[in-house]
Nucleic acid binder design. Structure first.
Lengths: 184, 184
DNA sequence: TGTTGCAGTGCATCTAGTTGCATAGGTAGC
DNA sequence: GCTACCTATGCAACTAGATGCACTGCAACA
């Protein structure tokens, strides 16, 4: 499990509320780790009980009061320990790959439609990543420290999306009868 | 959820026992969907209750009796329905990306060691995939039907591993002081 | 002779995460 | 004036999956 640690990383970059964190998990760090707000609140409560984060209640008018969380020294230690600890490589779980294998006897149209749809979604995501890179890291060669790390992670995401799109295109051109015209 | 469907796909390719399925999830289809034997047995029981699979008890001597599962017509329908049904794109969850972002203040050695270790693991996996491709699909241009689908899925896995390895190398050369010698 | 590994099935317990629901005031558009 | 969305927190119920354990009986190896 690593939501705790993803939260630690995010809070270490900047203190914030559960609500803030939930929004960050919709973009930024959320590109590489997802979480709903319920899950975030639940885990934050546990982290507070474990002494990994401290809370400051901020009263607001016009808006609900909020709890701003910060990483404690114990939290930083826990993060450092986790980083050093070897983790098992991620398990790839691809619905689409399973569908593709399952569609060997017919259902080709259905699976191709799904592949095209996913191609579109990933192309969108790639655009978001590339725009974010252009906006936030205009001069990658000079990056250092935190910004360099953030950029490297973003580069990883860009690579993944590009690979996915290339694969989708390969699948489409291999399976779509239209694309195969003239190849037989 | 899709373990049910992954099992349907695997059983549709060839009937088998829970034990067989668990082993297939350690390679082949397991490259893209993982499952422990406990999970497989649990889900098989539910699938049988739902009428997606039928069972034949095979008595053996010298070995434990076994239950061979086959996909029923209802199971095939369920699979077809699932294939056509749009699914949300996979959520990437990368421990390593989180670690990399979390290691911005020190802990560089620890995170680099992890990156190197993962690079090794992915290189191994890539070798397995490439060997499997060479062995099972020596002439990809002529593939059709089920074999073509299987090959496409394997190609996807190969692409992912190559992308991962390239990213690891980029990260190492960007962060390792040794690789940076002369670049400053 | 003892241990390890394979074939085979399964239960019991726990945890991470999802889904649905609740509450409440402010603001912005139609 | 109504609807819808934003900020902000959280509970309750459920599911998928992971982990640990249990039993049998053969074969191979040291």
């Amino acid at each position: 499990m690593a939501l705790e640690h993803a939260i630690l990383v995010s809070l270490a970059e900047r203190a914030g509320t559960g609500y803030d964190l939930a929004r960050r998990f919709d973009n930024s760090i959320g590109y590489f780790w997802s979480a709903t707000h319920q899950q975030v609140y639940k885990v934050l409560a546990r982290m507070q009980a474990d002494g990994w984060v401290s809370v400051t209640l901020v009263e607001q008018d016009g808006r609900p009061d909020k709890k701003v969380y910060e990483v404690t020294a114990a939290g930083r230690d826990a993060l450092a320990g986790w980083i050093a600890e070897p983790a098992a490589p991620e398990v790839t779980r691809s619905d689409l790959a399973v569908k593709l294998r399952g569609a060997a006897d017919g259902h080709l149209d259905a699976v191709l439609a799904e592949v095209r749809r996913h191609r579109g979604l990933h192309a969108q995501r790639l655009d978001v990543y590339l725009a974010s890179e252009k906006r936030e890291f205009p001069d990658p060669a000079r990056l250092q420290g935190r910004r360099l790390h953030q950029w490297l992670v973003l580069r990883g995401g860009i690579g993944l999306e590009q690979t996915a799109i290339t694969w989708f295109d390969d699948v489409i051109s291999a399976l779509d009868p239209k694309s195969r015209k003239g190849t037989t």
